[in-house]
């Protein structure tokens, strides 16, 4: 609903907004955040949170960059990026479930560590001039549909099936609603948590692959905002930070909302510096409306 209002405003203000090229651009820019957000939604439904995804994305991307530089082919590089992401995600999961450190503290700690790894590997210089052999994954199109959109759709369908049509998904929701109860009915809580965080890591790795494919470089400040943006998008999409409730479709809407705001503001001639203000204020408004509705219902 809000998304429609937003689009109408931008469409009225700038004739370029609704052009096919611009919509494709928005989609392409949404792919990284969108993929990460699918994983983030599952982790938040589980009652967790991961502020280190930016770090995971960065480490995967820098490993991909280095792998390309030593001349490895695509079919080695891509699995390296994905595996790195999944491993780092699983590491988060292990720390959170085995040592009972609250997820926000644990991932805050691992974020520092992952950023350190990034700086050590990258050494303060951009990795650039990477091959373009994979850019068709984001920039190409299949039968007129941008391939980035197809990929994004595939990830969401996969995540949705996993969450809503498998016993694993039911376990995730159960843990998010009441962890103690889930443990008592025999759900292996630790294992499910590790799997969920690993899945988010895997998605972050995939986002890294696509990022490198699209930009063909790895910069020092890669991934800095993606964790907070992903959390914001998930919450905009109706997830409850306390766990148990959340929607993949909502999260995807949240992602588009953020990206359309960023894109639309530039088109109607507002400095891009304002985009964070707008996103933040919208987030506040959504939270307030939510709070008032909850109070009226309760």
């Amino acid at each position: 609903m809000a998304l429609l209002v937003l689009c109408t405003i931008f469409a009225l203000q700038s004739e370029f907004f609704l052009s096919e090229r611009n919509l494709t651009t928005i989609l392409r820019n949404s792919v990284d955040l969108g993929i990460v957000c699918a994983g983030m939604t599952i982790v938040i439904i589980l009652g967790g949170i991961d502020v280190s995804v930016g770090g995971i994305l960065a480490v995967s991307a820098v490993l991909i960059g280095r792998a390309y530089q030593v001349g490895m082919p695509d079919w080695v590089v891509v699995p390296v990026g994905l595996a790195a992401g999944a491993l780092l995600g699983a590491l988060n999961g292990v720390i959170i479930s085995k040592s009972r450190v609250p997820p926000i503290v644990a991932t805050l700690g691992t974020m520092y560590v992952y950023l350190a790894v990034l700086f050590l590997v990258i050494g303060g210089v951009w990795i650039s001039g990477l091959p373009s052999s994979l850019s068709f994954l984001v920039l190409g199109d299949v039968a007129g549909i941008p391939s980035g959109a197809l990929l994004l759709a595939a990830v969401y369908v996969f995540a949705w099936l996993l969450l809503r049509r498998t016993p694993w998904g039911q376990r995730v929701v159960a843990i998010g609603c009441d962890e103690t109860a889930a443990r008592l009915v025999g759900i292996r809580v630790d294992r499910t948590k590790i799997q969920a965080y690993a899945l988010l890591g895997l998605f972050a790795g995939l986002a890294a692959v696509l990022y490198v494919a699209r930009m063909r470089n790895v910069e020092v400040n890669i991934g800095t905002n993606i964790a907070l943006e992903a959390i914001a998008a998930t919450i905009l999409g109706g997830a409850n930070i306390r766990g148990g409730v959340g929607s993949l479709v909502g999260a995807l809407m949240g992602v588009l909302f953020i990206k359309i705001t960023q894109n639309g503001l530039v088109l109607i001639g507002v400095s891009s510096l304002w985009e964070t203000v707008v996103i933040g204020s919208l987030l506040v408004v959504v939270l307030v409306i939510d709070a008032i509705e909850t109070r009226r219902a309760g």
Partner: peptide, 29 residues
């Protein structure tokens, strides 16, 4: 946000974090 409207503090202050830091950047360019 947190006390009167009972928004979880993590979300509420995340939102104001965006708003305040964005404002700081936007006002000064």
């Amino acid at each position: 946000l947190v006390c009167t409207l009972r928004v979880p503090s993590l979300m509420a202050t995340l939102a104001t974090f965006f708003a305040y830091s964005g404002l700081a950047l936007a006002l000064t360019g």
